[in-house]
Design a protein around this nucleic acid. Structure first.
Length: 262
DNA sequence: CACTTGACCTGTCCGC
DNA sequence: TGCGGACAGGTCAAGT
């Protein structure tokens, strides 16, 4: 489900609601979805929530953390009604409930004591120190790979997923199949700007709005209504009217405009 | 080492 | 209506 803007939206929403609350009980309905001992979590207070790449890290007052990855179909819903996709339920002392729903069971919640999960991640694209030079250095580590696949690599840049990768290469007018070594400096510069712009826009609009994504209130974001290419294959390009095409890159669906993207 | 493919799951949609 | 296949926003391990 979620890429950087979606996870960021969830982080902001969740922070306002559960920081300071004590977890009374954890109900694990799907053992694969919760890795760790609920005894380490029950009775603890939430002290902080951060996002890194597409992960959320919830700090507890015993210095352990709940690391959450929603993968393709995970959702965190506050005070909702459990469904058949509900895998874990956190019951807080004040009666607040947090549901972890995950239709495809790819997502997980882990109890961790250090941040080693973050070791291999590339830079955060919305941080101030993510300059063009940083971007270029990272991208050039994968010279022979299609540029759109490189954008999805979390070791190169963290937080970009399929939607924002498709949009960023469209905005910078680059054919998603182009290899990194083949891109001119000006193209890389445009791509850098597009990546930052499209992620920031995603955050501003409260994330994307596809099958699974909802914020903690269960409400969809509006980013996809503004998407140029994502999920728009065989429809007319919003810029030039050419019929958008679709191909598979790195195993992922990729819609693009054969006229705008060269 | 660099890069690609398949596996993990469940649900939905599309064509026959 | 039913069935099979393709596909879905992510990441690993295993393969070439």
């Amino acid at each position: 489900m979620p890429e950087l803007p979606e996870v960021e939206t969830i982080k902001v929403g969740l922070s306002k609601k559960i920081v300071g609350l004590k977890i009374k009980k954890v109900e694990v309905l799907s053992p694969k979805s919760f890795l760790g001992d609920i005894k380490d979590v029950e009775g603890r207070k939430v002290t902080d929530i951060i996002r890194r790449a597409k992960m959320l890290s919830i700090t507890l007052d015993n210095d352990l953390k709940l690391l959450i990855h929603l993968k393709m179909s995970g959702q965190l819903i506050l005070d909702g009604v459990p469904t058949k996709s509900t895998r874990v339920i956190f019951h807080f002392e004040d009666g607040t409930k947090l549901l972890f729903n995950d239709q495809r069971k790819f997502g997980w919640i882990k109890v961790i004591s250090d941040d080693s999960h973050f070791d291999k991640l590339g830079p955060e694209p919305l941080e101030k120190d993510f300059t063009y030079e940083v971007f270029k250095t990272q991208i050039l580590k994968r010279k022979n790979t299609p540029i759109k696949v490189v954008l999805l690599d979390q070791e190169i840049i963290s937080g970009i997923g399929n939607i924002y990768a498709c949009e960023a290469v469209f905005i910078s007018k680059i054919d998603p199949r182009r290899k990194v070594s083949d891109l001119k400096d000006i193209e890389l510069k445009n791509l850098y700007k597009a990546v930052v712009e499209v992620l920031q826009k995603g955050v501003n609009l409260g994330g994307s709005s596809s099958v699974h994504y909802v914020n903690i209130e269960g409400v969809r974001g509006t980013f996809l209504e503004e998407a140029f290419v994502y999920k728009r294959e065989y429809k007319p390009c919003k810029v030039c009217g050419t019929t958008l095409e679709k191909l598979k890159l790195g195993g992922r669906g990729t819609a693009f405009c054969p006229n705008c993207q060269k």
